[in-house]
Design a protein around this nucleic acid. Sequence first.
DNA 1: TATAATTCCTATCGATTTAGTAGGATAATA
DNA 2: TATTATCCTACTAAATCGATAGGAATTATA
Lengths: 136, 136
Amino acid sequence: MLSKKTKYGIKALTFLAKQEGNAPVQIETISKSENISRKFLESILLSLRKNGFLGSKKGKGGGYYLLKKPSEIQMVDVMRILEGPIAMVPCVSLNFYEKCSDCPDEASCAVHLLMVKVRDNTLDIFRNTSLADLTN
Amino acid sequence: MLSKKTKYGIKALTFLAKQEGNAPVQIETISKSENISRKFLESILLSLRKNGFLGSKKGKGGGYYLLKKPSEIQMVDVMRILEGPIAMVPCVSLNFYEKCSDCPDEASCAVHLLMVKVRDNTLDIFRNTSLADLTN
DNA sequence: TATAATTCCTATCGATTTAGTAGGATAATA
DNA sequence: TATTATCCTACTAAATCGATAGGAATTATA
């Protein structure tokens, strides 16, 4: 399951991508427009800022804005920051690899084999989809 | 994340598929061979039996056995029973559909759009992979 | 310089899910 | 009848998730 955090994060990025110009948009504005709990969204935007997707400005007229063009923001990077691993199993993850304690040999593991296929395909989609692609 | 339930279930099915003949295999045997908690595996096999993948026999010489040929068992069916929805978001699920409470229009939702792509690809893999394919 | 507006940060909480355990009921075999 | 195995229900500890609370820090503006 995709977490609400990721879902809301993508919606917020999309909202920002749709703005004309690059003026800061307040949390409150996004929260109301996208029906996202204000405080929860706050923490998500904070995390997106700390990871280089967003810039922010404090005080009156402040808010968040995209640091790159939507076409330059790949979904694979967004997913990794918000959701974590792309793979369904740690033993198949490129960026969050962990060995399975129960499995003596990955090469002959049915689950491993199947999940590698899924990861490759999913990765391909996330790599080849930018924020711009989702903003019609 | 793939649940341990699904992971163990697939491993158990693979183990059974590798057997010569169709003689019942005891829970204990699978549990030890695949390093799966005995009691947990018990509940998983029970669920696979109730959903038509396995047959069982009680008493001495009893155990579990496949009801179909491995090549006739599609991973998509296994996944749906053990893991639930294939889709990462309910509003994109074919078999477990649920509307998002926060989203006024699926057609224009970025998350929806992205997750449909992922679902289609993943579904394709699970549909075109049989238990036999995983048993080398 | 005072005030209001806004992000920043840490901590906490309730609900749900997950992985696993316990213990006995039921059925088949010898 | 004794033994072997599955069947079934209920319980539990730990982790995760979604959300909330409350105030600190910073900036714009009157």
